[in-house]
Design a protein around this nucleic acid. Sequence first.
DNA 1: ACCTTGACCTTGG
DNA 2: CCCAAGGCCAAGG
Length: 109
Amino acid sequence: MHEMTEMVCQAVRAIPPGRVATYGDVAELVGCTARQVGRILAIHGADTPWWRVVNASGRLPPHLMPEARRRWAAEGINVEQDAAGVPLRRYRAEPKPWADRAGLADEYD
DNA sequence: ACCTTGACCTTGG
DNA sequence: CCCAAGGCCAAGG
């Protein structure tokens, strides 16, 4: 498996339950582009907590929303009825602790 | 090598 | 809040 693929999956697995990170956040942490993160998760996301990675609007592509909503609810992430996605203000993972958990703190500025 | 396709992001209306 | 435009860029045909 490619190095970057491993790093991305590792970073995603390090996101604490009940919290989320954006594709951009993951990209910055591992050192690649947001698109690359999306591509990798689209292929190897099955064995990761993929529902904890959302786009800049706190959403995921339509076909994944049903399952994602269940997962979010299951770990205490409450999405208001009227909201389209996860409110990042409240659930976004904090960079430092997350990076430490991921064992990739060296990539952090 | 060219074209199309995305689990993207930011900015401006 | 929604939409469009421009930038982005690897993978697969």
